[in-house]
Structure formats: C-alpha cells, structure tokens
Design a protein around this nucleic acid. Structure first.
Lengths: 130, 130
DNA sequence: CTTGACCTTCCCACATTGGGAAGACCCATC
DNA sequence: GATGGGTCTTCCCAATGTGGGAAGGTCAAG
C-alpha cells in the first residue's frame, strides 16, 4: 500500500511517517516510481509507534522500544525499566507543572480582579521569586 | 550597562535577552559602538520576564503581561483572567501527564521484569489503545 | 488528453534555549 | 603602541515533534 493508506491504517500522518523514516526510526521499500510501499507489518510498527507516542515516550525511547519489541528474546526487565524511568519523568514534570499552577492560583486568589489597577500578581512578577 | 551585566543582574542569559529583543518583546538602546545599553529599569523588565517564565507563562502571554504591567491604569481583572486561564492550562497539562504516567505504571505493574521475554507493556503498545 | 487525487522532495514554521564561529571592540598591562 | 583577555556583535545550527505548503512527478478514471 501507499503512504496515504498506511497513514490512515495506523493513525500516523504521512508527514510523520516520512519524518520517522528520515530519522531512521523506520524504513520503507520503494516502488519503481519512487513511491514508498508498505505492508501490514509496517502498519503494525506504525501503530506501535503511535501508541508509544500516546504514552508520551520520546522518539529516542521508542527507538529502543522498537528494538526490544522486535527482539523475541528480550528480557522484559529492560522494557519495564524503561517504562518506569519514563513514568518517573512524567510524574516529575506533572508535579512541577502542578506546583507552578498552585502558586499562581494562590497569587490570583489575592487579586481583586475588578477594574482597579492594584494587582498582587504583577507585583510578584515584578519583585518576587528571588 | 552592557548586556552581560544586565544578564547577571536579571538572571536572564545574554542569549535570551537578544532573543527577546529579536522577537520584539523588549527593546534596547544602542551605543555608538553598537553595544546594547541597559539601565536599571531594563533589568527590572528582564526580571519580570524571568519570573513570568518561572511561572511557565508562554512568551506571548508575557508580552501581554508586560503591557498590563506598564499600564498603570490597567484593570486587575485582566491580569487575573490571564493568570487563571494559564492556571487552567497548566493543570490540564499536569493532569494529562499524570494520567499517562498512571496508565503506564499500571502496565508496568503487570510486567514481570525478569529475564523472560514476556511483557505486557510491549503487547499493549502493539495492539492496545485503539 | 485532461482532471483530480496521490506521491515525491525541499523549505519553513511553531517555542525555547543553548552552543559556537568569526569578527569588532574595550581596557589594562607591558 | 602593541599585545592579550574578556566582552560585544551577528549569524548559523542544535534539540523536540508536528504541520503547512510549494513545485513537480505519477496514476487512474472519464
């Protein structure tokens, strides 16, 4: 099948498929006319990639996951270790975003929010967080 | 003062100061020799920007915040509204990261993590999340 | 043969920060 | 006055991931 069909079948845009190929994440056969040609197995790989992206794995992680996926004799410990490291990274980032949100919400709570100019939020930005 | 001193005094790198100028967030006087020249007020602006970045405001938001900051007669409601919208965005992102982390952690929990190849994480990536 | 849908490559954009090169400059010391 | 170290200038490139769009080739149906 052509790239469009592979895109539709995998949920990965044609743009991204070409990009993944450009960075060496995947490969593709070429037809005499230069068109990329994909089989069902390729679509499965693309789906794998998309699911991993859905789980916010960086592409470099996905590169390793693909290698592990293709290696029938891999140790599941390797996969688990990657997954847990990724979970930790996600949670760290989520917590830090939440912390920032909390402190900003706190600031906003003390802002009258009417048509007077006085605003602790701007005051904090001006001088605070030293 | 020169850019280096302004950078040291504000906590914004010289690189970033030039960048902020390039995108029109700030301006700078030029000396005859071409060097940028900053005064204490400029450093205050840079500090304002850095604090807003610490609170994860996007630069476009900072552009508006700066305008509000400079407008002595602004209504605090405008600031509060922006802040709360930003808080909501942060919390949405934090929650979605946490949700992804949760589901991945859940998957990892069912992975033996030993030297056997069987791994539900890969299986899920392969077929799941449809 | 024309038309439209699809494919190709290539460049550009987003947002943010940093690295580094090449050249100009300033100040102080010899 | 020259030499040198530090600072400044601009310009290009990098990362991340995704998309837009142009210019041109290809294919199938009418």
């Amino acid at each position: 099948m052509n790239i469009g069909e592979a895109a539709a079948g995998s949920g990965v845009s044609a743009k991204m498929i070409r990009h993944y190929e450009a960075i060496g994440l995947i490969e593709a056969e070429r037809r005499p006319n230069g068109y990329r040609s994909y089989g069902p197995q390729d679509v499965a790989v693309l789906r794998f990639i998309r699911h991993a992206r859905d789980l916010a794995f960086p592409l470099e992680d996905i590169r390793k996951l693909l290698a592990l996926w293709r290696d029938r004799s891999r140790a599941s410990a390797d996969v688990k270790q990657m997954a847990l490291a990724h979970v930790a990274a996600l949670e760290t980032k989520a917590a830090s975003l939440q912390a920032v949100a909390d402190s900003l919400r706190h600031l906003a709570q003390h802002c009258s929010g009417d048509d007077r100019p006085n605003c602790p939020i701007l005051a904090e930005l001006e001088g605070g967080a030293r």
